[in-house]
Design a protein around this nucleic acid. Sequence first.
DNA 1: GGAAAACAGTTAGGCGCCTAACGGTTAGCT
DNA 2: AGCTAACCGTTAGGCGCCTAACTGTTTTCC
Lengths: 185, 185
Amino acid sequence: MPHLLIKDLPRYECLIEASKRFPELNPSACEAFLHLLRAGDEAFVAMERNLTAHNISHGRFGVLMLLAQNCDDCGGTGAMTPAELADQTRVTRATMTGLVDTLERDGFVSRTVDANDRRMMRVCLTPKAHAFLEKLLPGHFQLMASLMAPLSQTERKTLVTLLNKVIQNAATLNSSPAQSTAAGR
Amino acid sequence: MPHLLIKDLPRYECLIEASKRFPELNPSACEAFLHLLRAGDEAFVAMERNLTAHNISHGRFGVLMLLAQNCDDCGGTGAMTPAELADQTRVTRATMTGLVDTLERDGFVSRTVDANDRRMMRVCLTPKAHAFLEKLLPGHFQLMASLMAPLSQTERKTLVTLLNKVIQNAATLNSSPAQSTAAGR
DNA sequence: GGAAAACAGTTAGGCGCCTAACGGTTAGCT
DNA sequence: AGCTAACCGTTAGGCGCCTAACTGTTTTCC
């Protein structure tokens, strides 16, 4: 379930030591990177454990949340196409087909063909899904709260600010074509 | 490849709005949690993109790093049993079997049976693996550095401190049998 | 000495995600 | 009109990770 990630993060002195062999290794950057990876993984595992206890994968949960949000916020019908869902949840359309398949099988969503464009499908939440979320979400939110409990309000704000810088930076890095560093193969 | 995670993180006002319907939702905790998940995912994707460019998965990479570390630090032979590897990389022994299988197939590790206990195997890095790491690691470290570039030295320290609090807390939460209603700590 | 428990590693089967290729539908061009 | 390109959703096949059950080896304890 968890991402493979070395159990004991290396001590800072080891990073400094290693930086002598590898001049490209920036100890503070490496330390921050590894801690970020680890904390994110830990948070993910905690969340997924809670979800699997309710017999739902994080993938399917993401789809339900997205549909629910679309339903509540825009006051719309809550209907979205698979392509929209795939785009906003960052999975491929092929994966979304599988997710919607199982959600439909379990009675959480319904599929209908678009009246105007027969290529498109409309995916809608069922009442059963709304009831399911209503029962699941309180525990989900409590989990977030207890995970962030050791941080004060201002610490959380600081954390968000710092993470935002990383997110923005990573977004541009990840979208750039290729930043291959080593020359050739 | 990435964890499914909603593309646009909700605005803070939306969280406050949602907290009216769900009293368990703590807006600042939720915001910090989602940003952590996203930043960790972004970092993970960046790292894995770099690794797959060298035809290695993050799972196999973790095993190689662990073996290399064990070799360098302790001055030992660098030989570890699959059970040790599985324990320290946080995957099951069954998964480790598969990882070592492919690593052995590609000539990166060798398997030998322990002389004293014929139940055990000894997994060792080959010279080919050392050469491979020597070529791969500079780019790997550069990636970390460029990802953390927007943070100053002190900001990185702050980030590590905050993340450490979360990691410690999550470790106890994840190891506990079931999460309580969390009124404490 | 011999049965049973404990342990190490592997195999079998499942799930989620991916990429690549496929039929069905609409829009654009000549 | 008809041919083509673009698009939507789906299928097929692969990889990594999981759990559960299995094989083989050592230890334990009568």
